[in-house]
Structures are given as C-alpha cells and as structure tokens.
Lab assay of single mutants.
Amino acid sequence: MIINNLKLIREKKKISQSELAALLEVSRQTINGIEKNKYNPSLQLALKIAYYLNTPLEDIFQWQ
C-alpha cells in the first residue's frame, strides 16, 4: 500500500487542489482522489507532483 503526504505538503505550501490540478493538467477530482488514497498516481504524474511541489518524491509517497 502506498501512503501519501500530498495533502499535508500541498497545504503547507499554501497551494489549493485546483491550483495544483491546473499546474499538472489534471482535474481537481484527480488530486482529491490521490489525497484520499482512492487510487495511486502513475509514475509520470507522481514525478510531476514532486517537481511542482519542489519536494522529493519519497517525501510525498511512501510504501507501507
């Protein structure tokens, strides 16, 4: 199972779901689904999230 800290990191950086979704060219619902662990992002999307949040990938997504 993958645990993610996306919501915590996104809120710490004061970025809304809508703003992050626009940067990543995905829907706000996609961001919401990832934050709620409804599904895991593709590797490409995970890397883009880490890039736009300027945060190491392993700080956002962790195996458990």
Rank of each mutant, 00 (worst) to 15 (best):
M1C: 07
I2R: 10
I2K: 09
I2S: 09
I2F: 10
I2T: 12
I2E: 07
I3Y: 08
I3T: 14
I3E: 07
N4G: 03
N4Y: 01
N4A: 03
N4H: 03
N4V: 03
N4I: 03
N4R: 02
N5C: 06
N5M: 06
N5Q: 06
N5A: 05
N5P: 02
L6N: 00
L6D: 00
L6V: 05
L6W: 00
K7L: 08
K7V: 07
K7M: 08
K7A: 10
K7F: 06
L8F: 14
L8V: 14
I9Y: 12
I9A: 07
I9F: 10
I9Q: 06
I9V: 13
R10E: 00
R10V: 02
R10C: 03
R10M: 07
R10Q: 01
R10H: 01
E11W: 08
E11G: 06
E11S: 10
E11V: 12
E11I: 14
E11Q: 12
K12D: 10
K12F: 11
K12C: 09
K12Q: 14
K12A: 14
K12M: 14
K12W: 11
K13R: 11
K13D: 04
K13M: 14
K13S: 10
K13F: 08
K13T: 07
K13E: 08
K13Q: 13
K14G: 15
K14S: 12
K14T: 06
K14V: 06
K14L: 13
K14W: 06
I15E: 01
I15Q: 05
I15T: 05
S16P: 07
S16W: 04
S16G: 08
S16K: 10
Q17C: 05
Q17S: 06
Q17A: 09
Q17D: 05
Q17M: 09
Q17Y: 04
S18H: 12
S18A: 15
S18E: 15
S18N: 13
E19H: 13
E19D: 13
E19Q: 14
E19K: 14
L20E: 00
L20I: 05
L20D: 00
A21D: 02
A21H: 02
A21E: 03
A21N: 02
A21W: 01
A21I: 02
A21S: 08
A22W: 07
A22F: 11
L23Q: 11
L23A: 15
L23T: 07
L23R: 11
L23I: 14
L23N: 11
L24Y: 00
L24G: 03
L24K: 00
L24R: 01
L24I: 13
L24N: 03
L24V: 15
E25W: 08
E25L: 11
E25K: 14
E25H: 15
V26D: 02
V26C: 07
V26H: 03
V26I: 13
V26Q: 04
V26R: 04
V26Y: 03
S27V: 03
S27P: 15
S27Y: 03
S27H: 09
S27R: 09
R28C: 09
R28K: 12
R28I: 15
R28A: 14
R28F: 10
R28M: 15
R28Y: 11
R28G: 08
Q29G: 13
Q29K: 13
Q29R: 13
Q29P: 06
T30R: 08
T30P: 01
T30S: 06
T30C: 12
T30K: 09
I31M: 04
I31N: 00
I31G: 00
I31C: 01
I31K: 00
N32K: 15
N32T: 12
N32M: 15
N32Y: 11
G33E: 15
G33F: 13
G33V: 10
G33K: 15
I34E: 00
I34V: 06
I34C: 01
I34M: 05
I34D: 00
I34R: 01
E35T: 01
E35Y: 02
E35A: 01
E35D: 02
E35C: 02
K36P: 01
K36L: 14
K36T: 15
K36W: 08
K36A: 15
K36F: 09
N37P: 01
K38F: 13
K38A: 13
K38M: 14
Y39N: 08
Y39G: 05
Y39C: 09
N40D: 10
N40M: 14
N40H: 11
N40E: 15
N40K: 11
N40L: 13
P41L: 07
P41I: 10
P41M: 05
P41V: 12
S42D: 11
S42I: 04
S42A: 06
S42T: 13
L43T: 08
L43W: 13
L43P: 10
L43Y: 15
L43I: 12
L43H: 11
L43N: 07
Q44C: 11
Q44L: 12
Q44S: 11
Q44T: 14
Q44R: 11
Q44V: 13
L45T: 05
L45I: 08
L45M: 09
A46W: 05
A46N: 01
A46F: 03
A46G: 09
L47T: 11
L47M: 14
L47K: 12
L47Q: 12
L47P: 01
K48L: 09
K48F: 04
K48Y: 05
K48N: 07
K48W: 06
K48E: 07
I49E: 00
I49A: 05
I49V: 06
A50R: 03
A50F: 01
A50T: 04
Y51T: 10
Y51K: 10
Y51P: 01
Y51G: 08
Y51F: 13
Y51C: 08
Y51L: 11
Y52T: 11
Y52M: 10
Y52C: 07
Y52H: 12
Y52N: 06
L53M: 07
L53K: 00
L53Y: 01
N54R: 11
N54A: 14
N54S: 14
N54H: 12
N54L: 06
T55F: 05
T55S: 09
T55Y: 07
T55A: 08
T55D: 03
T55H: 08
P56F: 04
P56R: 10
P56W: 03
P56Y: 05
L57G: 02
L57Q: 03
E58P: 10
E58I: 07
E58W: 10
E58R: 10
D59P: 02
D59N: 10
D59G: 07
D59W: 10
D59C: 08
D59V: 09
D59E: 14
I60T: 02
I60L: 12
I60F: 03
I60N: 00
I60E: 01
F61S: 00
F61H: 01
F61I: 03
F61R: 01
F61T: 01
F61A: 01
Q62Y: 07
Q62F: 07
Q62L: 08
Q62H: 08
Q62R: 11
W63R: 04
W63S: 04
W63P: 04
W63A: 04
Q64C: 09
Q64K: 11
Q64H: 11
